[in-house]
Amino acid sequence: MTIASTPTRAELRPLERPRFVWAIADALTLAKRNLVQIPRIPEELIFATIQPVMFVLLFRYVFGGAIAGTGTTYVNYLMAGIFTQTVIFGSTTTGIGLANDLQRGLVDRFRSLPMAKSAVLTGRTLSDLVRNTFVVLVMWVVGLLVGFQPQGSPLAWLAAVGILLLTSFAFSWISATIGLAVNTVEAAQSAGFIWLFPLTFASSIFVPTKTMPLWLRGFAEHQPVSVIANAVRGLLLNQADPTTVWAAVGYCVAMLVIFVPLAVRAYGNRAAR
């Protein structure tokens, strides 16, 4: 232990750095703040992991036997979908976390500091990205345990993980927009989740879309979640189709282009109340 010394008046001054350096540094400071909390509230991460594990077990063993026409083993088909669903559901923590910070007055404290304004949002979306990466890795291991066998080259698998993380990041900004638009943490929770159910089930995540009624098929085959799941599936099973992969990336970029400014605006409006 060193003896705690007292900073002198001269030391108690802000360092001089360019603005963009502070934008990054402040985001990292807040991301770190969010990340150190994760092991302190283990139940949150445990439930965030149990939920997709439950989906894996249910679909693999309960429904899986009755689902045909996937062109590969059902577990191989399923896992790409589960990864996609996991990152999309996991991104809802962004909005909930922001709603929490607003409700507890932390956002007021942050806004009264001479820090980069963007850091509250970028810090939160970055820490949720790290958290989602962890959950995807856990799901990968769970998948291997129930018979998942990725095909083709590990490089393609990495590309699949890359798309998943991009998806996580893009959906985090949608979640942020929702979390900032509603008034309470509870509302952020339900509003953040409810629209994801039709989007993930009316998709190619769990079952092939070709048995769906025609009116639904049109939507299910082209909506972002299906396209992303199909791209990930192709990369994991050595059936990659470049058009689908780029369409998935395009969807994510489009979501970011739309929702980053919306979230920033919602943050400005909300904080000014």
């Binding site: 705690a4 900073p7 030391e11 108690l12 400071t29 807040l30 703040r33 942050f110 001479p114 820090m115």
Partner: peptide
């Protein structure tokens, strides 16, 4: 410490100030 960092203090100074 976090508040000190967000005021853009150097890491060591932020930690010392927190303890103080």
């Amino acid at each position: 410490e976090m508040v000190g960092r967000l005021y853009h203090l150097a890491g060591r100074v932020a930690r010392q100030r927190a303890n103080e």
